[in-house]
Amino acid sequence: MTLSTRQAERPTRHDGSGVQRSKRTPSGGDKRCPGGYCPAMFFIFGLRTKVSQSGVVQQVCRNCRNHAAQVITRRSTKFSLFFIPIIPIRTRYMQQCTFCGAQYEISRSDAQRLPVG
């Protein structure tokens, strides 16, 4: 099988497995990795949100206008590295009506001011 001139000029070549390999130096090592050993590093990172219930208060719902229990929750989002939470990104407080299920965000001062019981 002959290669076209265009394929022969490419800096990468195939070893038959369908994977392209980078061009190697005459000594057999990769140009980027002297001696043929190339150390690799990987990082596992992401965001994780933890939801915790702060309490329950009796209030009139903004949505349905019924006097019902309102569940106060705290949602804390943190940046994690190797599954270890490192840096807090955002903390939000939510209030959810147990009658209609409507959920809306409240400020931190409102969440701390509400009589939880």
Rank of each mutant, 00 (worst) to 15 (best):
T2M: 06
T2W: 07
L3E: 04
A8T: 10
R10M: 14
P11K: 04
T12R: 02
T12S: 04
R13D: 09
D15T: 04
G18S: 01
G18L: 02
V19C: 06
Q20A: 11
Q20E: 11
K23I: 13
K23E: 11
P26I: 14
P26Y: 08
G28K: 06
G29N: 11
D30V: 09
K31P: 08
K31E: 09
R32Y: 11
C33F: 05
P34A: 12
G36L: 04
R48W: 11
T49F: 03
V51Y: 09
S52M: 13
Q53P: 02
Q53L: 10
S54M: 14
Q58A: 14
R62A: 13
N63G: 14
N63C: 15
C64N: 03
N66D: 15
A69W: 08
A69T: 13
A69F: 11
I72K: 05
I72E: 02
R74F: 02
R75C: 11
T77M: 11
K78M: 13
S80R: 01
F82K: 00
F83P: 00
P85F: 01
I87L: 14
P88S: 03
T91D: 02
T91K: 08
R92S: 10
R92D: 08
Y93R: 07
Y93N: 05
M94N: 02
Q95V: 15
C97Y: 04
C97K: 01
F99R: 14
G101N: 03
A102E: 14
Y104A: 05
Y104H: 11
I106G: 01
R108K: 12
S109Q: 11
D110L: 12
A111P: 00
A111C: 05
Q112W: 05
Q112I: 06
R113D: 13
L114R: 10
P115V: 09
G117P: 01
